[in-house]
């Protein structure tokens, strides 16, 4: 096992890896910003839409949740442009895919949160003369959102991990940069190890924040009862 490690080669290209990390975060944040509102819309349609809407929305959510994200990404990148005649670059295809893919998961988080609110809350707001929209906006959602926060943040972390797929359609995220540095320096062991460590640092830090928030919320809800 006389392998001689050489991290210097990698450190010389460290700025490329950092650029990749920035791109990873960019895709994650944009997909989140688009995915959450779409998720809320899908959840409301699945819960309160009429029958004609409910069934296809439910099917769409299940489809996005149970097919591999790489299949979705390839479909949006390779198939959609032919179908619509509109050119789509790797960045747009990635945002589109991950916004939709995560919106399906967010929709289920929203739905679970809304359903978990006691029916008494609905009745109370109805008794005050609120319409369904008002009850939802003023009474139900504020309570539901608080319960959803942990599930929400966990999904966001999952999303960041899933964005590594964009490297397969040549968008220059962290994994893609690592791969190209590995090919030019022949130091794949060092490069991939460092890239993995970078992912770990960022994602682990996010996980710790999530755990902290979860613990705080648990204390808050215990104090409220």
């Amino acid at each position: 096992m006389g392998y001689e490690w050489d991290f210097l080669v990698v450190l010389r290209d460290f700025d490329l890896l950092l650029l990749g990390l920035v791109n990873t975060l960019k895709v994650t944040v944009l997909a989140l910003v688009l995915g959450v509102p779409i998720g809320l819309a899908l959840a409301l349609l699945r819960l309160y839409g009429n029958l004609v809407v409910r069934a296809p929305v439910g099917l769409l959510i299940e489809f996005l949740r149970t097919t591999p994200p790489i299949a979705q990404l390839f479909w949006f990148f390779f198939a959609l442009p032919i179908l619509t005649g509109i050119e789509i670059d790797p960045f747009r295809a990635s945002i589109l895919t991950f916004a939709l893919q995560s919106s399906a998961f967010f929709a289920e988080v929203f739905r679970g949160g809304i359903v978990s609110i006691d029916t008494g809350q609905w009745e109370a707001s109805k008794a005050l003369g609120m319409s369904r929209n008002e009850s939802l906006r003023r009474i139900i959602l504020p309570q539901a959102v608080k319960r959803m926060i942990p599930a929400f943040l966990e999904r966001a972390i999952e999303l960041m991990k899933t964005t590594t797929l964009v490297s397969t359609i040549s968008y220059a995220d962290l994994l893609y940069q690592a791969n190209s540095i590995a090919q030019s320096t022949y130091r794949s062991l060092e490069v991939f190890s460092i890239a993995a460590a970078m992912y770990f640092l960022v994602i682990f830090a996010c996980s710790m924040i999530v755990r902290y928030i979860e613990a705080r919320l648990a204390i808050a809800s215990e104090a409220a009862h």
Binding site: M160, K161, T162, T163, T164, L165, S167, L175, A178, N179, A182, S188, L189, V191, F192, S193, A195, A196, Y199, F200, I203, F204, S207
Partner: peptide, 14 residues
């Protein structure tokens, strides 16, 4: 806390 694709790539290339 690392993406599974990174794990697979690490085991294949590194």
């Amino acid at each position: 806390n690392t993406p599974v694709l990174v794990q697979i790539m690490w085991f294949f290339f590194a």
